[in-house]
Amino acid sequence: MIINKSEIAGLLDNLVKEYRVYAPVQKDGIVTFEQINEGTQAKPGATSKKPPKEILFPQSEELFNYQVDSQGLRMEDKIDDTKSVAFGVRPCDAKSMMLLDNVFHNDEYEDVYYTTRRKNTLIISVGCNQPASTCFCTSVGSSPFDTDGSDVLLTDIGDSYLAEAITEQGKEFLCKLNLPASDDQAKTKAEETKKQAQLTSEVDTTGIKEKLDDMFDHPYWESLYEKCLGCGACTYLCPTCHCFDIADEAKDCAGCRVRNWDSCMFPLFTLHGSGHNPRTSGKERWRQRAMHKFNYFVERYNASACVGCGRCIKNCPVNLDIRQVIADIKAQDTGSEVS
């Protein structure tokens, strides 16, 4: 199907009546994924500074409220089942949602807060005609027009988008919009567009999981973290990082349990109540970041917990580049090479 670019704002205006709609919005020079009230606010095709994972897994979210009074204890769950649409998601960010699904809904555990939002949110992605120089999605199992995690994929073919339904929900959604069908010309144009989208950045990740299997005590970690400030820029802006911390905010007999993003780069992350900290320095913290993304996650879910979006590369205050980390890991001698 075809959506004319000039009709996008009107289409979103209609969606806003029925759904909570999120889209990339430019404010003060920064693009963020936000709830919009009007179609003209949206800037489809822009990559947000903060990834849209927060639509499903907000940076701070109230899980439940509680109150104790003469009638006893009362609790109120804050499960959010509002029908939502995320419009203009990048394919890497959509892919990251699929990876997050593994964490929040698996054999052992279901996170009802996340899964309820996930079930009620349609993901409309826009493929990347011009990947940035920091994008390396094709090196980590994704691509500029990857359909994983999306319900609908839009391809920018000039004055319009070609819309493809990826899931059943996506199909139903598109049907409701009454869009004109795509002709052969548009389809050919979309194919060409997909083909010409070239990445300039590549890093070889083959065998990195096996390499890391033998690297827990490797001296490489001694030098990797040296310039790192131990901030949360890389983890908070990463679409696949998902660690969180629980805090109770209470006053007298009423309170609220809040879940906040946490970062493995903070010393507090593993600080025990006893005062003991098993990860005493940046060395153990960076090792954890690398291991979690390219070893533990691969072992558990058969995919790396990095989709190659490049946000951590662009936003690290000291220019610690994860592509270099991957290349360095690959180049280390672990003494058990078969080559």
Binding site: Q59, S60, L229, G230, C231, G232, A233, Y236, L237, D245, A247, E249, V258, N260, S263, F266, L268, P317
Partner: peptide, 29 residues
């Protein structure tokens, strides 16, 4: 993200007040 605090040469308290939990001086949100 505390990049500001961590990039600052003059910010070096062992535990920053924002990270304290008893008492919790400010919300972690």
């Amino acid at each position: 993200c505390y990049a500001c605090r961590n990039a600052c040469p003059m910010c070096y308290c062992d535990t920053c007040f924002v990270d304290e939990s008893t008492p919790q001086w400010i919300s972690k949100r």
